[in-house]
Each structure stands twice: as C-alpha cells, then as structure tokens.
Amino acid sequence: MARNDSSRRWYLFDYGNVVSTSPTPEDWEQLAEATGVANLQASTSTYWQHRHAYDAGALTSDEYWSLVCGQRVGAVRSGWLDILDDNQWSHPNLETLDVLEDLDARGERLALLSNMPAAMVSQFIDAPWTSLFQRLFFSSSLRLVKPSPAIFHHVLTELAVEPDLVTFVDDSPANVAAALSLGIDARLFAPSSDLSRLLSAPAAAERPFPRA
C-alpha cells in the first residue's frame, strides 16, 4: 500500500552557500568596481545592510543598488549590477548537486527555500538545478524572509506536512535555530560539510544544536 503523502519526508534546502558556493574574491572585486564601493562582502557593507529588504521584495533593483552605491542608479546600470550579482551566486556546489541527484533518483521529495531577490529569481528559475526540486520557495515572492517563523509556517502549509517530517539544510545558524524552534529537523551546513553524512546524522531532537 502506498504511503500517504502527508507521512512522507521532505528535504528542504537553502540555495546560497549550500546549492551554490560563496562568491569568489574576484567576484566581489568585479562588483566593487562596478558599484564604486569597496569591501562589499563585509557584513557591515551597504550590500548587506539593505539585502534583507531586497530579498523581501520591498525594494526594486533600482532602489537597492542606489542604496548600495550611495547615489541614484538607473534601470540600465541596476540591470547590469543584478547580472554581476547573479553571476557571483551562480557557482554550483557540485558535491551538493551530486547528493541532490541521488535523493531525486531515490524518489525523495525535495524543496528549496531561499532568501533571494526577484531579479535573481528570474535568472535562476529555469536553471538546470531547479528541476531537482518539486517545490521552490523564494523570499521575494512570498514577501517573507528567513529566519522569520512566518516563512517556515508558509512552507509547512504549502507542503502539507508536519514539522518533524521536514529535514532543512541551511548555512545560517539563525535560520537553523528558527526552524528548530518550530520542530523542524534542521541541519547546519558549512563549506566543509559532508552533506550525505549530515543528512544521515541523528534527528535534531537527538543531537546537540550545532555551533557556528
């Protein structure tokens, strides 16, 4: 007898630094040259200060890049900056893709939950890797951003599954903590992580919270 879909596990993955690798120093240098702003990769830079609002769909590309650059940026230049930004987040983590393909071949249910601005979504939506996921959730479309509990509640409702039947993989300790607080089996991913081993580790309730 086939299992009821509501009793089957979902594997929910973040995109940046999980499916993709981090931007290279050369990527950041190219974006810095185009914006005229140095050290954009720093957590205190204007790139990150306004990223939450951009990921949430609260800012247009023109508005976001104007804030990053500290001066008005028109549609043509902001479109170019979006392309550079898309490119630097498009480097695939090949080891992650191998694991995803294996999970897909086994018939597991895969979903993506990413904080991602609309301009980037439009570029990535038809990328080959998206075919591995049955459901795609993007912050800019939902107007919700991790680690808000609301975005996880939305995903759980859409997947029609209980929290303990979702294994969530993310590189942000804050996002992992938020998911754990809702009863989701959340796993903290790092560049050195062996994803297969991470997924086969004991459930969250049976192991200590991972340190950053």
Results as ranks from 00 to 15, higher is better:
Glu162Gln: 14
Asp126Lys: 07
Phe138Leu: 15
Val169Ser: 08
Val99Thr: 05
Val161Asn: 10
Ser22Asn: 06
Pro25Cys: 04
Val37Met: 05
Tyr11Cys: 05
Val76Asp: 09
Ser192Cys: 05
Val99Arg: 11
Trp80Leu: 06
Asp5Met: 05
Arg135Val: 13
Glu26Lys: 02
Leu188Phe: 11
Ser6Cys: 06
Asp82Arg: 11
Gln123Val: 15
Ala38Asp: 15
Gly107Lys: 11
Trp89Met: 03
Met116His: 14
Phe168Trp: 03
Lys146Ile: 03
Trp28Gln: 02
Ser122Leu: 13
Val176Gly: 06
Phe13Trp: 14
Arg135Ser: 15
Asn39Thr: 04
Glu33Lys: 00
Phe137Ser: 07
Ala174Pro: 04
Ala58Ser: 09
Ser78Tyr: 00
Ala179Gly: 13
Ser114Asp: 06
Ser43Leu: 10
Ser196Pro: 00
Ala105Val: 00
Phe152Arg: 01
Glu29Tyr: 01
Phe152Trp: 03
Asp102Ser: 14
Ala53Cys: 03
Asn93Gly: 02
Asp171Asn: 10
Tyr47Pro: 03
Thr21Ala: 07
Thr130Asp: 08
Ala212Pro: 08
Asp194Ile: 11
Pro25Asn: 07
Tyr11Leu: 08
Leu195Asn: 05
Gly183Asn: 04
Ala2Ile: 05
Arg8Cys: 15
Ser43Asp: 08
Gly74Ser: 06
Ser139Gly: 13
Leu182Gly: 11
Arg3Met: 11
Trp48Gln: 02
Ala127Ser: 14
Ser122Arg: 10
Gln41Cys: 08
Arg135Glu: 15
Leu113Met: 14
Gly70Cys: 12
Val68Asn: 00
Ala118Thr: 13
Leu103Glu: 07
Thr96Trp: 03
Asp55Pro: 01
Ala34Glu: 07
Ser131Gln: 14
Asn39Gln: 11
Ser7Cys: 06
Val68Pro: 02
Pro202Ala: 12
Trp48Cys: 01
Glu95Asn: 05
Val68His: 00
Asn175Lys: 06
Asp55Val: 09
Ala56Gly: 12
Arg106Phe: 10
Ser90Thr: 12
Asp85Ser: 10
Leu67Ser: 09
Asp86Ser: 07
Ile125Gly: 00
Leu132Ile: 08
Pro208Trp: 00
Gln71His: 15
Arg197Trp: 13
Gly70Pro: 10
Phe152Pro: 04
Thr96Phe: 03
Thr157Trp: 12
Pro210Lys: 13
Val18Met: 04
Asp104Glu: 03
Gly16Val: 03
Ala160Tyr: 01
Ile151Leu: 12
Val121Gln: 07
Pro210Tyr: 14
Gln134Arg: 03
Trp65Arg: 11
Asp27Thr: 12
Arg3Ala: 14
His91Cys: 02
Leu100Val: 01
Tyr11Asp: 05
Asn39Tyr: 08
Arg197Gly: 09
Ala160Ile: 01
